[in-house]
Amino acid sequence: MTAARLPAAPLLAALLALALWEGLVRWARVPAVLLPSPGSVATSLWEAAPLLARHALATGGAATGAFLIALAAGVALASLMVLSPLATRLLYPNLLLFQLLPKVALGPLFVVWLGLGLPSLMAFAVFVSLFPVAIAMLTGLRAADPLQIRLCQAQGGSGWQIFRYIRLPTALPFLFAGAKVAATMAFTGAVVGEFISADAGLGWMVMQAVGRSDTPLIFAALAVLCVLGAALYALVVLAEDAARRRWGTRR
């Protein structure tokens, strides 16, 4: 009874909200330009399905690719900083500074540098999603128990062994926390990049629909986008669960 209620309650609330929305739009005769009913969004979703699928593939591909690159680069950067004090001195202050900057606002620069298209879009998405990973990973690698490291040293463990057997397992939960943020940021970067300038992708499609005041299509495209973003997030959560089962229960 209680186990069945847990996932059902939010679902029920969402359905209720949808019904309320539909009812409100019909009862108050809200113009579709302002707030389309869920029904008309669904219609738009159905009619524009091939188009949406094509652009979703472009955005999803760019965001996922950027996420993977950011993940690899962030882990590499953080590992480098832990293994080499010189790298820490050079990189860490800059990393902190970038953390304070409104990074997403730098989008147009990437267009200036790399022109229109996939490379600039992905570079921008990597740029905004790299920092959460790098900082989380660095925090995690540094959170290792000093006593465990001493123990490893006492048994003649090499620097690499300490890294592999003590720092890395400690850092894993931190990494996943960073990866969750990065998954959302990769999509944010891709879509904002498409807002700025693009000739394809869901962000571009939304801007086109804004120009035509086709609000149902805006909602449809954003819904697809949200589902994609949530899907990447869910994949990270699944990977985290798998890792936790595989490498112990440390949270």
Partner: peptide
């Protein structure tokens, strides 16, 4: 929290 909120600007 999960969806890319910044993408909702056009709304």
């Amino acid at each position: 929290q999960i969806v890319p909120k910044m993408a909702l600007a056009p709304l």
